Measured scan of single mutants.
Amino acid sequence: MLDDRARMEAAKKEKVEQILAEFQLQEEDLKKVMRRMQKEMDRGLRLETHEEASVKMLPTYVRSTPEGSEVGDFLSLDLGGTNFRVMLVKVGEGEEGQWSVKTKHQMYSIPEDAMTGTAEMLFDYISECISDFLDKHQMKHKKLPLGFTFSFPVRHEDIDKGILLNWTKGFKASGAEGNNVVGLLRDAIKRRGDFEMDVVAMVNDTVATMISCYYEDHQCEVGMIVGTGCNACYMEEMQNVELVEGDEGRMCVNTEWGAFGDSGELDEFLLEYDRLVDESSANPGQQLYEKLIGGKYMGELVRLVLLRLVDENLLFHGEASEQLRTRGAFETRFVSQVESDTGDRKQIYNILSTLGLRPSTTDCDIVRRACESVSTRAAHMCSAGLAGVINRMRESRSEDVMRITVGVDGSVYKLHPSFKERFHASVRRLTPSCEITFIESEEGSGRGAALVSAVACKKACMLGQ
């Protein structure tokens, strides 16, 4: 009897593995994704193909990295998701002549009506938060230079001027797309009239992360975010950046690689679950690469896999709870928690219980395998993109072996128990001629924006502006 049951459990697990095998990517698959990513990057950089390229390769006008001589107080704003952060950054000489960066910050959550109302409502709310922060720190009387981390696709015309191309991540505030974001912020500050600010720089969160990590390690020339969304930036040779005049030196390019796949480059790798996630998203047909990796989508992918296993009578005796059938019910943090389970399955059992399920031991094991399959594919897909960037940098610099540091931020990278190990191992397999160091950014977005502002202020002083 026991043997029969054991055989049935083994057969069930084997069927589960057959279904989950769809998520496995072979090294040849990853090399294919990497080569296609490089081709799209090239198209994004070139003037004649930029418009139709899915990977936009947006110039950021960040050319210099901090040298350690900029000092002063800077205000930093960070808008990239449902939370908005205001930070005071003091850049100065530390002990023994070292450079020191001290920060104080406060988080504000953005109400739904500000995210989806008008641009005026959104930026009025942001300036209200700045006003509140300055009151708390008794700094209303000071006109501070301000660095703005704005983590949406922007076409820069200068370091302090950028046109919002399109909202992502659930934002829909009308009247912002096609307009200068810094102008919208300046107008809102003017409307309030109770404080003055000098907006000197606007950067993407990947750029802010790279600059913040450069402060720790001067070989950091790539910034990457794996959180709600997924994106990367890197220092490109100016001669390859056709959208900006000049051939000397390097400029940081914001790849906006989340949109890779929007022209069909990933079609052969998309599964039924991916198509369902895409169809029910706020932007169907867009940001397809990001939807395979980002935390906004990972939990939902797992939920759809679990429903398939229920329908195949391989999980929960073929019956799903009402909660499990509800879109968004299986949160991405559950994926991390399930994979963090120590082996007694308590954590998995508790999560499934909150979803109205009474799982068996085998159910718990199957749910864990589903989570591992989805998150491992995410790590491997992400590795193909980064390997594409790094191999490109090595080739354009004609280096036999390139040493490089990548600064990384984002909740999936930082909080998932195995993502970074799987990701690092896969990147290294795909970049055999590179020695890569990964560092995690601390308060990256805010500190990085302030350091970019410090560079901009120093330049302005040198130019006598």
Rank of each mutant, 00 (worst) to 15 (best):
I126E: 00
S398Q: 03
E372H: 02
C233A: 02
D205K: 08
C461T: 10
V367A: 14
V199W: 09
P66F: 05
N179V: 14
V182I: 15
L315T: 02
C220I: 04
Q98D: 12
D247K: 03
V277W: 02
V86T: 08
E248S: 13
H50Y: 13
I163Q: 15
A320E: 07
A454D: 13
E14L: 09
V241S: 03
G446C: 15
L2N: 03
R46H: 07
V86A: 08
V182G: 08
S100L: 10
A370P: 00
L430V: 02
G147A: 10
I366Y: 13
I436Q: 00
R63W: 05
L276V: 12
I436D: 00
R5F: 06
M402C: 11
V367C: 08
R394G: 09
T118Q: 15
V427W: 00
L122D: 04
D274M: 00
V374G: 01
N283H: 09
Y234E: 07
T103V: 08
G388W: 03
V226K: 02
R392G: 01
L355A: 02
G117S: 06
S109G: 08
F123E: 04
A329D: 13
S418P: 03
F84K: 03
Y215H: 04
S360R: 02
E331S: 13
R368M: 14
I404T: 12
K136R: 12
A53P: 01
M197N: 04
H105K: 15
T209L: 08
G294H: 11
M462P: 11
S174T: 13
A114R: 12
S131Y: 08
N204L: 07
F150L: 14
K414A: 06
E221D: 11
G328R: 10
V101T: 07
I348S: 05
A378E: 02
A53F: 03
I110G: 01
L309A: 04
N180R: 15
L415R: 07
L415N: 11
D247E: 11
G193I: 10
E9T: 11
S100K: 11
A370L: 10
M210T: 03
S441F: 03
D42N: 14
L144G: 02
R429S: 14
E256N: 07
I130G: 01
H380F: 12
N283R: 10
T118E: 12
V226W: 15
S174C: 15
A387W: 00
K172F: 13
I404V: 15
S396R: 15
S280K: 13
G407W: 03
S127H: 02
S453C: 13
M197E: 05
L45V: 05
S426Y: 01
D4E: 04
K142Q: 15
K291D: 03
G295Q: 13
D363Q: 00
V389W: 01
E440L: 12
E395R: 08
D262L: 13
C434P: 01
R85M: 14
S109V: 12
V62M: 03
D132R: 05
R368Y: 13
C129W: 06
V181C: 08
S433F: 11
E256H: 03
G299F: 00
F330T: 00
V33H: 05
S64N: 15
G229H: 02
L307I: 05
V33I: 13
R85L: 12
E28G: 11
R327L: 14
P66T: 08
A282G: 11
Y125E: 10
E395W: 08
S109F: 04
K169G: 08
G464F: 05
P359W: 05
I348H: 01
Q323P: 12
E331C: 14
C461D: 14
L386N: 02
D267N: 09
M57I: 04
A379M: 08
E421H: 11
M115L: 14
K414F: 03
R429E: 13
K39Q: 11
L355R: 05
E52Q: 14
L146T: 14
P417T: 04
I189M: 13
A329F: 15
E157K: 12
G72I: 02
P432K: 03
R369E: 11
L415H: 07
V71S: 07
D341T: 04
D247M: 06
V241F: 04
S360L: 06
L314Y: 12
E319D: 15
D217N: 14
F171I: 15
T82A: 13
D217I: 01
E268Q: 12
R191A: 02
G294I: 05
R369P: 00
A387Y: 00
K140V: 07
L185A: 04
M121L: 08
C382N: 08
G464Q: 08
R333Y: 07
E399F: 08
S360V: 08
Y297Q: 05
N231D: 10
S340Q: 09
M121S: 15
C213V: 12
F330C: 05
P359C: 04
M393I: 04
F150S: 12
E157H: 11
M235C: 00
E17L: 05
V367L: 11
S433M: 06
G81N: 04
E221P: 01
N240H: 04
D341S: 07
L288V: 14
Q38R: 12
V406L: 02
R275E: 06
T60I: 07
M238L: 14
R397E: 06
M37E: 01
L30R: 12
D78H: 15
S280W: 05
E221R: 02
D187S: 07
P359Y: 09
F330P: 02
D278C: 02
H137I: 04
G223P: 01
Q138H: 14
D135A: 11
L304T: 08
F148P: 01
G170R: 07
L324C: 05
D124T: 07
A21K: 07
S100E: 08
T60W: 02
E221V: 05
G444Y: 06
Y413L: 04
T405K: 09
C252T: 02
M462V: 05
F171N: 15
K32A: 06
Q38P: 01
G162S: 11
A378Y: 00
M202S: 11
D198Q: 07
D124N: 11
R403G: 07
E196I: 09
G246F: 04
E28W: 07
S396G: 07
G385N: 01
G385R: 03
K420Y: 06
H141T: 07
G178D: 10
G94D: 07
D78S: 13
L184T: 05
C213G: 06
Y215D: 12
V154C: 13
S263C: 15
T60H: 03
L271H: 01
S398C: 09
E70A: 11
K172H: 06
K346I: 03
H380C: 08
K172C: 14
K169D: 13
K39C: 09
